[in-house]
Design a protein around this nucleic acid. Structure first.
Lengths: 186, 186
DNA sequence: TGAATCAGGACTGATTTGATCCTGTATTGA
DNA sequence: TCAATACAGGATCAAATCAGTCCTGATTCA
């Protein structure tokens, strides 16, 4: 339910890794070992990214994968599409654009705006956004002290670019929700 | 993979329906029949919405459900949460905030911004946005009298609030993607 | 040639989702 | 009072999806 698959996660992790060593190749095993990912599954993911023209494979000894495009030119949307297929928000949205559920699906068109907004978010987020962020390693501290607070202090420009302008969304009759409400699952 | 469940779809359809008949009750069967949804599954969904305080159930003959809050005060985020549980973008995001996949998950913090942006989109979209949109019906209206007209009078700039300002997200080195690229799955 | 690496199909087990069934309770109206 | 109507919710089942593995083959390099 509105969640990326593990394969998509793995793909983003791998791409972030490749972006951190520009020009160099990294084998599937290298990446899998570095992040404790299942090797064979990661291999599938990298194959899909290769077919999508995001990375290039090099066979043979000392082979591996390399990022063949600028990290800033690879969006999360493209990665997710390459790995999981088209992003479809509701079952109303099918390739042929009709709702097979019922003749009178009343929510398809309204939800299209939501769908497009989510695509927009994913399309703006790039591998360079992944690579630029500081890596927070949890190894030394097993119990997170207060991850929410720490995550909220340092807010680079990426967040500003992503979060839609606050205030413009407030409409008449719309109950204002607090930030804490939006993020209550953390 | 980044898709709403059918239950969430059904919930939104049902809420849109209830919003179209303000104050009145509609039974599970009424709604299920109107949109050709499985009755028993829709019943589950409405129970969840009832527990979440979004609708109120009325037992007995002529009973059913009624929307007990203003449609503009019920966000899609709240509906999805009530039906599917917390929205979690990646497997890195768990209730306790740690990544069980690996010690050094490099994408969790960057993706948190994407996650928050998606929550923001869902949080801004309300049931009134669903109800106000024109319904494209392929079959003649069977049920509601004409509640749509009354609900359509007040119409703020919903679309403007949802679609993020074009151009503000363009950053250095980012390849510009055409609109048609973003929405290629349609 | 042999080791290292990618390519890709087939397959399996686990999880999630969608849907149904059944029993019980509450309310209405004849 | 009682039957009909409708919600409440647990148990269950089937299908779909996901995560992961296995195997065979091709490519490259030392």
């Amino acid at each position: 339910m509105l969640k990326l698959t593990k394969k998509a996660d793995y793909g983003l992790i791998a791409l972030r890794h490749l972006a951190s060593v520009p020009g160099a190749t990294a084998s599937t095993k290298d990446i899998a070992d570095a992040y404790h990912l299942p090797v064979t599954l990661l291999a599938k993911v990298l194959q899909q990214l290769s077919r999508a023209g995001i990375v290039q494979s090099v066979s043979g000894t000392n082979g591996g994968y390399k990022l063949i495009r600028h990290p800033a030119a690879v969006s999360a949307l493209e990665v997710v599409r390459a790995i999981d297929g088209p992003v479809i928000l509701t079952h109303c949205f099918t390739e042929h654009g009709t709702c097979d559920q019922s003749d009178n699906c009343t929510v398809r068109e309204p939800l299209r705006k939501v769908h497009e907004a989510i695509l927009d978010v994913l399309n703006r987020f790039t591998i360079s956004d992944l690579a630029e962020s500081p890596v927070i390693r949890l190894t030394p501290l097993p119990v997170p002290v207060n991850p929410v607070a720490s995550a909220r202090t340092a807010r680079p420009a990426v967040a500003a670019a992503l979060t839609t302008p606050s205030g413009s969304g407030v409409r008449s009759g719309r109950a204002l929700l607090l930030e804490s409400d939006v993020h209550q699952e953390f």
